[in-house]
Structure formats: structure tokens, C-alpha cells
Write a protein that binds this DNA or RNA. Structure first.
Lengths: 322, 322
DNA sequence: TTGTAGGCGTTATCAG
DNA sequence: CTGATAACGCCTACAA
């Protein structure tokens, strides 16, 4: 016999009343509440979440989908988990390693009611295919998706990129190289477009031949620096996909005895703690705020309560690499 | 009517047979299996996890408890999540920020059957109190716990520490400072003891006055370096709680124009990617392997199948800071 | 091989 | 304010 039944029996009240006490319903006499509460304590009772979920159809669990996780993604996840917890939700992590089938399992878990909603950090499946899952629960994305059906909390990175470009140009750097992340991502397209139009508008050279893609980690950054060093001419500055790439570039530049920022200026992106420690000029990216907004978007559906998002902005943080 | 019922109806078979097909039972005729499978596809059926969990008493979910999460912890989590997934388990993250009550919620979730087991990365509650939860499901810890009831997959860090000490001494560094993490943790005690006995055995100075505690992040490392620089005499080398502390120390040393390793040698711990990129000598810590073993320990109970753990060892990685 | 009946632990809808 | 009674969706003896 379950503890619930035991409480029923010992108190002499019905299931319904016991349930009401558990859920703090007002429609219970003080007497009943006291008696039942007392017995619950004696029995060290705690409700079974699976029974609750089956009955209510809600699990109070949110899935978060990411292909890999680095420190940048971690800061998003941490904030998301915190916010979710404040609203009474637990978070499950789906790391997909870029595998479509594994990723799909997260979406199937929305269907099978393991989670009430999904936050996507990065995904590899076709957005058109994924949007079919919207009928099973709310989905929000950090990465910008191709279609508009799945809402995104991402900011337009072009804004941040232009901040960096203006900074560099104002300091006299005009031959500016770019080191991008995913070649096909919307963010990369957005940054590249910003760069090209900005440079063109100033009558400055657009170094397309210096574009590098798939540079994410500090190792990637090292590699990128070596490539740059091999080119006939070194650019005066390099804009990086993120701070880790910048760290790698900075570190490798030192090894190659390229003086920063005299021979090469470096600008990172995101403003992680290490960028500060290592003195890297970067663009502050309000990641935590975006994570909070991501949960709020889900909550708008799950809790039927809209939370107005505050507008977020990028900020240039000048340090020693420019 | 649920899809399950719909399948029953359309196929003409009973609940039991439908259930058998879902669970790949052998005791089903090919005819029944085919017919039911066909209908399941038509209906795009997927089982409700809450119903399964309620019925079986298993959620196939594991909780992972950590106070904060940095890149080191992240690598443990990632590997744990991966391994769990290979065994059909999803992982939920409990970040406690060092709050006892929040941490306790994770353990209560074991009681309420939200999770089948728990992996602790770091916890703040009294181990004596926590071990009471062992009756509700398996628990394993990375951090070493005071009692032996909760098994730990941690290695004795003294071994790794001695590797570092031997290396430094062999290179001629004899005035060695230490920068520790949590002052009261078993790891710190273990490292400190290793240092003191090792130095004593070699007849070398034990720099107790140079001990620094609570140094975890690169910011902490910067601060630690500044303190060292203020002391009347600089040590010849410093052993760090982890690589991030080492990064901070290295970075700050450069700012203070202290030449590494000539004036100050630095040894990190863990061997994270950035230690390689930045050329920091360190002790390789098989973190991923420990994470795998952590899940295996839980699996021994949940799956009633023991997986023999392979013995793990530390390794010195010599780079440019020594 | 198949079916019946009961159980898993709650919530929810009605009456009273 | 309280209590039957029926969901919720699936699993599992035990029988047939």
C-alpha cells in the first residue's frame, strides 16, 4: 500500500481531501488539514512525481539541446537552469554531438511527455522538420533558425560586429581579417555581411581571401593564426568568432613572435572571464540575459503568462589586444 | 481515448498484447506483431514516459549535483551524460550554488522518484545526512565524501601532486609555493600532506607561510599572484589547484614582468585544453574516465551488472612553464 | 500465444 | 467542506 493510501486510512479522510491538503487547497477544514499534515510528517511522505505527471500531463521538466558544450554555452545553460528552477522546472541536457538522430530523441521526448518544453542551443536537423514538434510543447532557440516558427532569443550579431569594426578603424587599423565559426550559420552570414558593407562604406579593403571558417576553440585559433602568418601579408587586425578563438590566436602569435597589438590587433567576441584575464579586447555579449529570456518564452506558454523581454545590447570592452 | 487504446481497438488485440509488441516481447505471434506495428506507425504512436515510469517505478533519469560549473566540471558532466545516454538514461542537472536547501531538493527528487540515481560532483550538505538517501536509489560522488557509505570515483590527488613535485625538484626548483582550492576539502588535505612529507623527506623547505586557499578561477589566480609578488621573497615555483588558477597566475606574472619559468615556474592541474594552448606544464587528470566510472557505479545497481573499473593514473605533461 | 483484471500514485469532476 | 468515481497510460501476474 502506498503512503498516500496509508494517510487516507490513518486520517479517515478520502483521497480527495488528502490530495487537497497536499496541494494547499483552501477548501479543507483546519481540522482535516492539521490531522493529515501531521500524518504526512510522521510517514515522511513525499509525492510521487510520475503519478503527478501522468495525472496532470505536466512534468515540470525542460530539455536543453546542444551539440557540444564549451564555456560559452555553459554560461547560457547555467543561467537557463537557474531561471527554470526559479519557476519550479528541472532541466535535462541533451548533448547531441551534432548527430541528427540523437538530436531527434530530444524532440521525441517532447512528444512522449518526458519534457514540457525545449530550449535549443544549436541544432542540426532541418528546422522545417523540427517545427512539426511545436504542437507537442513550446520550443525556443538560441541559435537563429531558418524559419520563424521556432522563436529565437538570439540577437543580431551584426550589431556587435560593427562595434568592433568601428573600434578598430578608429584606432587606425584598416586591413582587417575575419575568423568565423560555422560557415553556413546565420550568425556568420550576418557578421560577414556587416563586415563587407561596413568596409565598403568606408572605402576600406575587404579581405575576402583572408576569411577563415569553422574556428571555434582555442586550438582552432592557433591553427588560424598559423595560416595567417603564412600568407604573404599579415593583416593589421583580426576579428574572431569568439573569445576562445581569440585566445588561441593570441597565444600562437606570441609563439610566432608577432607583437600584439603592434603587428596584429585582436578582437574577441562574447566577453568570457578569460578574455578579461588575458586582456583581450572583446564584444560583451549578454548571454545570461538571453538564457533568461529563453525560459521566459517557454513560460509564456507553459504558465500562460507573458514576460516582457528587456532589449539587450552589445558593448565593446577595450583591453590590451587593440 | 489514448492512442494506446486506439491501437487496441483497431487491431482487435488486448492491452497486454499491444504492450508486448511495444516492449518487443517474444511471446507474440508474427501476425499480431505485424498488425500492431503497422497501426502504431499509422498513428505515429509513442509511449508516454510518465505512464511507463509510474508503472515500472523507473524513470531512466539520473541527477547530477554540482554547486557551480566551470570547464573542468563540464568535462566530467559531458562524459557522464554521454555514458548515461549510451545506457538509455537522461541526465538532469542540479546546480546548487552551494545552497544546502537547493542541494537537498536533488536528494528529495530521488525520493520522489524523479530520478533513479544521483551523481554528486560537489556537495555542501553533511554526508551523514545524505547517506540516508541511499535507500531510495544509488548515489555516487566525484568529490570524496567524509564517510565511506557513498562511494566515490575520485582518485587520490596526492599521487598527481607528487608527480609535480618530483618534476620541479628534478629541474632544480626547491622553494615551492602552493595554491589550494577549498581549505577544508579532502583533496586539499591530501595535497598538502603530500607536499609536506615530500619536501621534508628531501630536506627541502616547506613554505607553509605561502599557502593560499580558495583559489579556483583564473581571477583567483591573478589575485594569488599579486599576493605572492608582495611577499618579501618570490618562490621559485608554484603548484596550482587547477589549470585555471595557473592561467591566472601566468597572466598576472606577465603583467608584473615576472619571467616564467626563469623567475617563477608554474604547474597546473587537470590538463584542460587551454593549458595546452597556453603552454602550461600540468598534471593530466583522467576526468572523463572518472565520469564514466561514476555512471558505471550507478549502473551496477540500476542494471544489476557490475562493470569492472580500469585503474586510472595521473601523468605529468611538461610544457613551457617549467 | 492471448486475454483478464488489477495496480502504479495522483488529480479532477462531480455530487452531496 | 467532503467523498465517490473515474481518469492518466502503461505494465504484469495469472489464467486460459
Amino acid at each position: 500500500m502506498s503512503k498516500f493510501d496509508e494517510i487516507m486510512k490513518r486520517s479517515g479522510y478520502s483521497k480527495a481531501t488528502v490530495s487537497r491538503v497536499i496541494n494547499n487547497s483552501r477548501h479543507v477544514s483546519d481540522e482535516a488539514r492539521q490531522k493529515i499534515t501531521e500524518i504526512m510528517k510522521q510517514l515522511n511522505y513525499i509525492p510521487n512525481r510520475n503519478a503527478i505527471s501522468l495525472s496532470t500531463g505536466q512534468t515540470k521538466q525542460i530539455g536543453i539541446v546542444t551539440s557540444t558544450s564549451n564555456a560559452i554555452i555553459l554560461s547560457f545553460m547555467n543561467q537557463f537552469i537557474d531561471t527554470a528552477m526559479d519557476f519550479g522546472f528541472q532541466t535535462l541536457i541533451y548533448t547531441t554531438r551534432g548527430d541528427k538522430d540523437i538530436e531527434l530523441k530530444a524532440f521525441e521526448d517532447l512528444r512522449s511527455k518526458r519534457v514540457d518544453g525545449l530550449a535549443i542551443i544549436a541544432c542540426v536537423n532541418d528546422p522545417e522538420k523540427l517545427k512539426a514538434y511545436l504542437e507537442y510543447g513550446p520550443i525556443v532557440s538560441w541559435q537563429r533558425m531558418g524559419n520563424n516558427e521556432i522563436p529565437s532569443v538570439a540577437m543580431d550579431q551584426a550589431e556587435g560586429y560593427i562595434l568592433a569594426l568601428e573600434h578598430l578603424v578608429s584606432k587606425g587599423y584598416t586591413r582587417i581579417a575575419n575568423v568565423f565559426g560555422r560557415a553556413d550559420s546565420i550568425n556568420t552570414q550576418s557578421r560577414r555581411a556587416a563586415y563587407e558593407t561596413f568596409m565598403a562604406s568606408k572605402g576600406l579593403p575587404v579581405l575576402k581571401e583572408a576569411y577563415q571558417y569553422w574556428v571555434f576553440t582555442s586550438s582552432d585559433g592557433e591553427e588560424a593564426m598559423r595560416k595567417m602568418a603564412k600568407a604573404p601579408e599579415l593583416p593589421q587586425a583580426v576579428l574572431c568568432s569568439n573569445d576562445y578563438a581569440a585566445i588561441g590566436i593570441l597565444s600562437e602569435a606570441r609563439k610566432l613572435h608577432i607583437s600584439v597589438p603592434d603587428q596584429l590587433a585582436i578582437v574577441g567576441f562574447d566577453d568570457v572571464e578569460l578574455a578579461r584575464v588575458l586582456g583581450i579586447t572583446t564584444i560583451h555579449n549578454p548571454i545570461a540575459e538571453q538564457a533568461t529570456q529563453a525560459f521566459h518564452q517557454l513560460w509564456a506558454v507553459l504558465g500562460r503568462q507573458k514576460v516582457e523581454p528587456e532589449p539587450l545590447t552589445y558593448r565593446l570592452i577595450e583591453r590590451e589586444t587593440t
